[in-house]
Structure formats: C-alpha cells, structure tokens
C-alpha cells in the first residue's frame, strides 16, 4: 500500500498537491450551536471538528470540585461516519480517552481556572470528519470555542502537526501521510511562543526533531493569525448587532496565502 503512494514527488508536491510547508485550507465557524455557552467548528482540509463549551457552571460531581479553581471536563465523541471504515467507538475507547486527556492537559495551564472556584467547564468535542491532524483540529477548535464562550485564557493555543519524509519536513499531514511518516503534534501559545503540548506517537530521529519542531512552532503563528481574525470578526459582528460599537466594516487586513520562508529547506 505505502509503496504505491508517493508522499513527496520529484517536483516537490505532496499527494494532495500541496508543497512541503503548505497548510491545508482552514475554515472557522463561530455561530452558536444550541444552548452552548460557546461553540466553534474548524476544518483543516477534510478534517472537521466541532466543539461546544458549557460553563463555567456548577460541577456535577461534588467529589471532583476543587475549592480554588475550576475543573476542565473534556469529552470526545468520534462519530462513526467520520472515517472510511464505519466503526462505532465507545466512550471508553483507549484512543479517545487519550485524545481527551491530551486536550485537557493542553488547556489546563492556559485557561484561567483560578477565577472560577468550585466550577466546572465542560468541553464537548465532536469529530465529524477525519483526514489526519485530528489532535491539532481538536485543540484549535477548543481554543476558538473557549474564546467565544468568554472563558478567560492567557493566550490562544495553536496546534499543528508535522512529519518527516526521508529528511524532508512536511506540515499538516493527511491520513495518508500520517500512516507512513513519523509525525509530531505541537501546540504553541503564539504571544509568548511557549509550547503547551508536544506529542510523538511514532519514532522520529532525534536530529530531525529540532527541525520539525521549529517549523511547527512557526506554522502555529500562521494558524494564530487565522484564528485571531475569525474571533475578532465574530466579536465585531456581535458588538455591531448590539448597536454599541462600530458597524461591521471591512475586516482585518486579509493575507490569505501565507508562504512560509523556505529557510529551513537547505539541509
């Protein structure tokens, strides 16, 4: 199977026509969903994730409440139609629990939980489509949903995945590429450039790690610009609708196709 697919062809293109450092198309939707306090859905190419936030609200289990801060409760639901092979995953599936745990540990240092003692913030993640970069999509969608719910955060968290194909680093992998390449997901806080999550499920040569890590941190800044514009636009729309602020005018300066500097390419 893997021998048939060319990850990176001679012209420097990947299987879906992207270049090495090209990210997939991102669409962000911040319209409210149901009774959620905040919600967002994001697509990275064909990966689509939707997140609803409830809270901060009274904790369901009294035993779990913390007297000095709020607890984050992350529940991930991978819908059976999200993958090629239709397969129902239960709530207790190991993969899903691990995904939930990494989302939780990513956001615990970022959300200002100490402002809400004895409360609980529920984060419900629904995976609608999967085509690689699941964790990055979940983290990005959760950040946006938390921002739209008005939950105080130190910064956005922008995640992106990267892999290495025979010494050539690639960004934002699809399922095809993820199956064949060692890959790493990095979540970065863009203002301070602090990294809140690095996960590596496959083996990656230690010499390659520094390259791909630095590249992913840079790509996080690009995703941040995109997310920031979406949140600003939404805020401006709501402020305008309330009649209290500036009318919804032309958005922030658009520069859609960010070409990353090919500085790391010579190795």
């Amino acid at each position: 199977m893997s021998s048939r697919i060319e990850i990176l062809n001679d012209g420097g293109y990947r299987s879906d026509g992207r270049r090495q450092y090209e990210l997939r198309d991102i669409t962000i939707d911040l319209t409210p969903q149901g009774t959620a306090d905040g919600s967002a859905s994001i697509t990275h190419g064909l990966t689509q994730v939707s997140v609803s936030i409830f809270g901060p609200r009274e904790a369901k289990q009294r035993s779990q409440t913390l007297h000095d801060r709020a607890i984050l409760n992350v529940e991930v639901n991978v819908l059976p139609f999200s993958t090629g092979d239709r397969r129902r995953r239960g709530r207790s599936d190991r993969r899903i629990l691990e995904l939930a745990a990494s989302i939780k540990s990513t956001f615990e240092p970022v959300v200002q939980t100490s402002l809400y003692p004895r409360s609980q913030i529920d984060i419900f993640v629904s995976v609608l489509q999967q085509d690689g970069g699941l964790l990055q999509a979940c983290i990005n969608a959760t950040t946006l949903a938390l921002a739209s719910a008005g939950v105080p955060m130190f910064d956005f968290v922008c995640a992106v995945s990267g892999g290495v194909h025979s010494a050539a680093p690639l960004l934002d992998l699809t399922t095809l590429e993820e199956n064949d390449l060692p890959h790493v997901t990095v979540a970065v806080m863009p203002r301070t450039k602090k990294v809140t999550l690095v996960t590596l499920e496959t083996r990656l040569h230690v010499d390659r790690f520094a390259d791909i890590f630095r590249l992913a941190c840079d790509a996080g800044q690009t995703i941040h610009a995109e997310m920031r514009r979406a949140v600003k636009e939404r805020t401006r729309t709501l402020v305008a609708a309330m009649g209290a602020g500036p009318r919804a005018g032309p958005g922030e300066h658009m520069d859609r196709d960010v070409v990353m500097d090919d500085t790391i390419i010579d190795y």
Partner: peptide, 16 residues
C-alpha cells in the same frame, strides 16, 4: 487600531 473611538477597541485573548 482601526477605530477612532478608543473605548470600542476589540481585543482577543493574548493581545497586549
């Protein structure tokens, strides 16, 4: 920012 009225400036998390 892009507004004349300083009191209506919009901010997102992590913005100085």
């Amino acid at each position: 920012g892009d507004f004349e009225d300083a009191t209506q400036k919009l901010i997102v998390p992590g913005e100085p």
